[in-house]
């Protein structure tokens, strides 16, 4: 036995090299995502004369906001190893709630917005309860919530859109220009702010640390004396708050709450998270990656549209991008 024992210092040496390689590869993945964004950006700039100008780039950023906001919350959920399918129709329900509170109940706009965001949090909390306490698999629990939200949005609004024509200050939340010099719609500023808050939450707070811990090894985290059930509920509730905010942003932008929309947004948001390098297996991911992922999707949509490629083909291309991104992530893991 003693003959095969490696001297301790040699044992340490080897892995160190491997560790450097891993972290380098981690950085590479983010770099790759960013590099692909640049490549796509340059490609469209060359391919379409209407792509690279201030107005169009503003439009791209504007179109990133809703999916990006949903993707921010979903990043936390996916890092824990979970999934949230209810964010799309949940957003439509939140938009309807916002319309009910502000247009039909006549609540002041700030109060209505707060109520909507908290309602989103409640949806998330219910998801969290079903997943963490009742132990329903995340896919099923949020699939159920997706259907419930879709139905409730139609029931509450009687299947008709609610218009915010009498609440111009609400519409300004998305379309106004708080900082005239920047000439960016407020929605973009709100999204940038939310992204920074998310990054701080994920990297600098105990919530973020437990999010990674649970995704890395839920059992070990629980045995370390951490109430993993509580923290999973917190994570889904947080994702719910982002659903609420997305509901406000989209209805303010459209000037109306559209109860029948929302389905499909969840998949785009999950795609953004995955393209950004967050692992569906949990434990790994970043907000920067998610923002890049969301930008890649909207740049693709915008550029292909400018090149007059039909909507159907845009989806085909987006599908392929997701496959390539996930395969690259898996190849990286295997190499590590």
């Amino acid at each position: 036995m003693s003959t095969s024992t490696v001297p301790p210092d040699q044992q340490e040496q080897q892995p160190t090299v491997a560790a450097l390689g891993t972290s380098f590869k981690d950085r590479l993945q983010q770099f790759l995502a960013f590099a692909s964004l640049i490549v796509i950006f340059v490609f469209f700039s060359v391919a379409s004369p209407n792509f690279f100008n201030y107005a169009n780039i503003t439009a791209i950023l504007f179109s990133t906001v809703v999916i990006g906001t949903l993707a921010l919350g979903t990043t936390f959920v996916i890092i824990t190893g979970g999934i949230d399918l209810s964010i799309g129709t949940g957003m439509a329900l939140c938009a309807v709630i916002s319309g009910e509170l502000i247009v039909n109940a006549g609540l002041p706009v700030p109060l209505g917005v707060l109520g909507t965001i908290l309602f989103g949090g409640l949806l998330g909390l219910i998801n969290g309860f079903n997943i963490a306490i009742l132990k329903i698999p995340p896919f099923i629990a949020t699939l159920a919530m997706m259907l419930v939200a879709q139905g409730l949005a139609l029931v509450i609004s009687h299947s008709t859109p609610i218009y915010f024509s009498d609440a111009p200050s609400y519409i300004k939340i998305s379309t106004g220009h708080l900082i005239p010099a920047l000439n960016l719609p407020n929605a973009v500023l709100v999204f940038a702010f939310l992204a920074v808050v998310s990054a701080v939450l994920l990297n600098k707070t105990i919530l973020g640390r437990y999010t990674y811990s649970i995704g890395s090894n839920e059992e070990a985290t629980a045995l370390s004396g951490i109430n993993t059930r509580k923290w999973k509920m917190v994570v889904y509730a947080l994702a719910g708050l982002f659903i609420g905010m997305a509901g406000v942003l989209i209805s303010a932008r459209l000037g109306s709450a559209q109860p029948a929309t929302g389905a499909g947004y969840e998949l785009q948001a999950i795609a953004a998270v995955v393209i950004g390098g967050t692992s569906l297996a949990g434990g790994k991911g970043s907000i920067v990656g998610t923002v890049i992922g969301a930008l890649i999707i909207s740049v693709l949509n915008n550029g292909l549209q400018l090149m007059s490629i039909p909507q159907e083909w845009q989806n085909v291309i987006l599908g392929c991008v997701i496959l390539v991104a996930v395969y690259a992530d898996m190849a990286r893991k295997r190499a590590a």
Partner: peptide
């Protein structure tokens, strides 16, 4: 590995 450590952390 299964119950003690966060291996990737």
């Amino acid at each position: 590995k299964q119950f003690g450590l966060l291996l990737e952390q």
